[in-house]
């Protein structure tokens, strides 16, 4: 398993996507799955930066990546405010333009792009787990 700490700033999202993209490529995922993994991880990290660490300067989160039994497991651990994505309303992606909700889209995409999305509040922080199976 590999782990890396990232500053909780939007400017580091490029590096976050590169990090998981390289791991996914090394694990033999195809381009479509690599993009899905990068997008889901970006959405997860953006939520941590925007919600968990809202107004907190110089914060960090830890990203881990593990590929085992044809499954890529990515975790994000932060020490910010508890933010349970499962409590966020699922947006209606069939709603008309005027009724479209702006929020919740990132979480919706995360769930659609990955095979599993789990959130736990642990003694060491908020832990979000994303799993993608290799087809």
């Amino acid at each position: 398993m590999s782990a890396k700490e990232f500053p909780a700033k939007f400017d580091y999202l490029d590096e976050v996507r590169e990090y998981v993209g390289e791991k996914a490529r090394a694990a033999g995922f195809g381009e479509k799955d690599i993009y899905s993994i990068q997008l889901a991880t970006d959405e997860a990290a953006s939520n941590v930066i925007e919600h968990a660490y809202e107004g907190v300067p110089d914060a960090f989160f830890e990203l881990t990546c593990e590929f085992k039994n044809d499954r890529m497991t990515i975790t994000l651990l932060d020490h910010g405010k508890t933010f349970d994505p499962s409590k966020v309303d699922v947006p209606d992606v069939k709603a008309d333009l005027s009724d479209r909700k702006i929020g919740g889209l990132g979480i919706y995409l995360m769930r659609k792009l990955m095979d599993e999305v789990r959130y736990e509040s642990t003694p060491s922080g908020n832990l979000l787990t994303l799993v993608k199976r290799k087809a």
Binding site: D42, S46, I102, L109
Partner: peptide
């Protein structure tokens, strides 16, 4: 090369305004 939901939100806001 890449667009996350942050870009989708920008598109949605523009579409609302334009229409």
């Amino acid at each position: 090369e890449y667009m996350s939901s942050a870009g989708f939100r920008a598109l949605l806001a523009a579409q609302r305004n334009c229409k």
